[in-house]
Amino acid sequence: MTSERNRATPTPGRPALSETRRAATRREVAMVAAHLFAENGYTATTVDDIAAAAGMGLRTFYRYFPGKEDVVAPLLAIGAQAWADELAACPPAIPLREAIGRSYRTATATALAEEGIAESLLRPLLRAATELPALRATWLRVQQDCEAQLIPIIAARTGRSPDDLDVAIAAAMANTAVRLAVELWAEGAVPGSAADAVDSCLTRLAGQTLL
């Protein structure tokens, strides 16, 4: 009895198999939706279209997502999580600003390759996420979550407490610089890749004299 109970208990710190499967399904449906949004536009794409393309019924769809505006959140969150992971793994000797830019570039390239997301799909998806009111709320929620992830990482790199106000400000400034860079890139307002735009904004942030 004890061995059976132990096998049924998830390992501490590791998501249960059902949670892993749920997250994988959410990413798969999000990818389907992203392609439909890119091809037909967000407004013209219905929940029925997404569910049908994903091979699931409407009731199943709503078990995974509250609504259409939430379906892209898993894709938007992938980049944020990958960035946080890369920044945490960046050697401590690298200055914070450089570490932020380097980790973002590595995380973006890795996440896009692993998820099979082409730039031709990423740009319109991000543009829709930043311009459409329904998706904008999801985009900003993901950004808020990302900022919260950065705080303990920056605290560890700088030897400060996560409750330190300077740490919170640094996380907010870094995340905002990256968000603005990505939004400008999605609009086509800056040349190069999204990572190039991030490097440019971080360089401007380092030399900011208005405050």
Rank of each mutant, 00 (worst) to 15 (best):
T209G: 01
C146M: 13
Y64H: 15
R14K: 10
A38E: 08
H35W: 01
A33W: 06
D49P: 05
C146R: 14
D70K: 07
E115D: 13
S120I: 03
D145K: 09
T60G: 00
D166F: 11
L132R: 11
A93N: 12
T176P: 00
L96G: 06
E115W: 07
Q81R: 14
K68H: 02
S3E: 11
D166I: 04
A181E: 06
L122Q: 08
E98H: 11
T138P: 07
L202C: 03
R141G: 15
G67W: 03
M1Y: 03
W185F: 08
R26G: 02
S193I: 01
M31P: 00
T106E: 10
W185G: 14
A99G: 15
L112W: 10
A30Y: 04
G101N: 03
D145R: 15
E183Y: 06
E4T: 10
A107E: 11
R14H: 11
V167I: 14
A113E: 13
R105E: 15
A33M: 06
R141D: 15
A195F: 09
R14F: 14
F37V: 10
I100A: 12
I117E: 09
S161L: 02
A174Y: 09
I78M: 14
A77H: 07
A89S: 15
L202D: 06
P152F: 07
E19L: 14
P124S: 10
G188K: 08
A189C: 01
S3A: 11
L96P: 04
S120T: 15
T176F: 02
G101P: 03
L76W: 12
P12V: 09
D70L: 03
A156P: 08
L122T: 09
M1T: 06
A171R: 07
R26V: 01
T20N: 04
T11S: 03
T106L: 08
L126W: 13
S200V: 05
T11Y: 02
A16Y: 06
L135F: 12
S3F: 03
R5H: 04
P15M: 13
V182Y: 04
L87A: 10
V167Q: 02
A82L: 02
S120P: 01
A84V: 08
A51I: 00
R97H: 06
D70Y: 06
A73I: 13
D164Q: 08
E147C: 11
A23D: 13
A24Y: 06
L75M: 13
L184I: 01
A177M: 01
A53H: 02
E187D: 15
R160P: 01
A107D: 03
N40M: 02
A34G: 12
D85Q: 14
A155Y: 05
Y42N: 00
G207L: 14
R26A: 13
A52E: 14
A113H: 10
N6E: 10
P10V: 13
G67S: 15
P92A: 13
T2F: 00
I154T: 08
Y104H: 12
A80Y: 03
A99D: 08
A82W: 08
R204Y: 07
A84K: 00
R27N: 11
L205T: 14
T130A: 15
